[in-house]
Design a protein around this nucleic acid. Structure first.
Lengths: 227, 227
DNA sequence: CGTCTCCTTGAGGTTGGTCAAACCAGGTGG
DNA sequence: CCACCTGGTTTGACCAACCTCAAGGAGACG
C-alpha cells in the first residue's frame, strides 16, 4: 500500500482527463488537424491555449542544454497538451505529431475567466495529475536499469491502450526507437538490445513497431522487492 | 533562444509562488511548526491541503517500486508542498522536514469554492510552474552525466538562495549526500567524488555541507554546445 | 533502383555503481 | 572528561551496465 504500483508508472488514466473537463467543451474554440511530423506548437512560443488530443498522438520534446532533443512525454487521445506553458506564458516544450492527429484548442485564457469554478477545478485536477505522472517518470529515470525502464514503459503503454479500448496485449507503437530511448534516458542501441533480449526470452514478440506482450508477469517481475 | 537556460534548471523562482497566491492568505487555516526529520504528510495519506513553506525546508520523497526511497524535490521557503495530491485525493509523496520549519496550511478544498477566480488562476499558475520544474529535472535525469547533474544542482541551489536574499556564492546545504544522490539519480559515492573533483579544480570549496562557489563559469561551461 | 530513415547487431571502452574500510562530528552516558 | 556509538562523509579498488562507434539489413518512397 505504501509503494507505487509499477504498472501505473506514468499512467495517469488519460481518458479521464477530458472527462474531467466535463461539459466545458464549450471552451473549445477550434478543431485542428495535424499531419504526422508537424509541429503543433514550439518551445518558447507564447502560450496560446491548451490542446486536447482528439485523435492520434504526439510527442512532447524540449531542447536540452547541450542542444540535443529530449522527449518528455508521449501524449495520446484524451490527454492534454501544453499544460506547462501556462505558468510562464510560453510553451516549455514542443509538440510534434507522431501520426495524423486532431486536437481541440481549449482557450483557457478566455474560457478561464468566463467559465465557472467547475472549469477551474477540473483544470487544477488535470494539472495535478500530470504532476503525478511526472513524479513516476522521475523515479523511473533516477532509479531503474534499462530492463526495468523498458518493462515499465511497455506496461504503461499497454495500459493506456487498454484504457482507450485497445487490446492490452497488442502494442502498435507510433514513435521511433530513438524517441523511446530519449524518453527513457537510454541510448537507442540499448533499447533495441533490451527489446530483442525480451523477445528471445519469450516475454515479448517484436516485429518492428508492432509488439505483442506474451508474458506480462515477467515484466512485472522486474520490480521484485530486491532484485 | 530555443534552448533552456541551464542556470534555470529546476529553478522555478519559488518566492513568486506565494506572491502569486496574493492576498489569498485568508485561505490559510493553520500555521504548523515541524521539527527537523518530522513527516509533514505521508505518501498515500488522504489529501488534506496544500502546504506553503514559511520557514525552513523539506524534501519530497516517494517509495520506488523496489522499495527504495526516491527524493523528488527539495522544497524551500516560499514553495508549496502537496501539489501532486490534489488530482488523486491522496498525497503522491511524503514531505520530510530537513530542518525545523514552519508551514501554512492552505485549505484549498474550502477556500477553493469560496475564493474568487483569482485564487483559482493563481493555483493553476503554481501547478503549471511546478510542471515546468519537473520538465527540467527530467531532462537532467535523462541526459546529463554526473558532473553536469551536480553543476546544474549547485547552480540551481545558488539561484534559489539568491532569490531568498542569500549570498549566491555561499551554499549551506540542508540535505545529506544521500538525498542529493537520490535526487540526481546518482550513487552517494559519485556525488562525493564529483564534489571533491570540483574542489580540487578550484571550482568549489567544499566543507561538509557548506559549499562556496568559486568559479561559476566553470560550472556553466559544463553545458557547452557539444562536450 | 537508389536513397533515406529506421532498426539491429557487434566490439570495445568509460562512466558510474558496488563493496569495503576508514574518518569525522556530534551526542550520550558513564 | 572520556569512551563509545551513530549517522554522515570520504576515498580506494574493482567491475559491469550501458554508451559509443561502426557496419549492415530492411522497409518506404520517389
Amino acid at each position: 500500500m505504501t509503494e507505487l504500483a509499477i504498472h501505473d508508472t506514468h499512467a495517469g488514466c488519460a481518458p479521464c482527463a477530458l472527462e474531467d473537463y466535463g461539459g466545458c467543451e464549450a471552451a473549445a474554440r477550434t478543431r485542428l488537424t495535424v499531419r504526422r511530423g508537424a509541429v503543433l506548437f514550439r518551445q518558447n512560443d507564447p502560450f496560446r491555449a491548451f490542446m486536447a488530443v482528439r485523435r492520434g498522438s504526439f510527442k512532447s520534446v524540449a531542447v536540452a542544454p547541450d542542444g540535443r532533443e529530449q522527449v518528455l512525454a508521449f501524449v495520446m487521445a484524451g490527454d492534454v497538451l501544453g499544460l506547462d506553458g501556462f505558468g510562464h506564458s510560453r510553451y516549455a516544450s514542443s509538440a510534434i505529431a507522431l501520426e495524423d492527429s486532431e486536437v481541440l484548442v481549449l482557450d483557457y485564457g478566455t474560457a478561464g475567466s468566463a467559465g465557472g469554478p467547475a472549469l477551474h477545478h477540473a483544470m487544477a485536477r488535470i494539472l495535478s495529475r500530470e504532476l503525478l505522472r511526472d513524479y513516476k517518470l522521475k523515479v523511473l529515470l533516477a532509479s531503474m536499469n534499462a530492463e526495468q525502464k523498458l518493462a515499465s514503459f511497455l506496461l504503461n503503454m499497454s495500459r493506456r491502450l487498454q484504457d482507450r479500448g485497445g487490446c492490452p496485449g497488442d502494442l502498435s507503437l507510433r514513435m521511433t526507437r530513438t524517441d523511446i530511448a530519449s524518453y527513457l534516458g537510454l541510448s537507442l542501441e540499448t533499447v533495441c538490445r533490451t527489446l530483442t533480449s525480451l523477445h528471445r526470452r519469450r516475454v515479448l514478440q517484436v516485429d518492428g513497431r508492432h509488439l505483442r506482450l506474451l508474458d506480462r508477469r515477467a515484466l512485472l517481475r522486474q520490480f521484485g522487492r530486491d532484485e
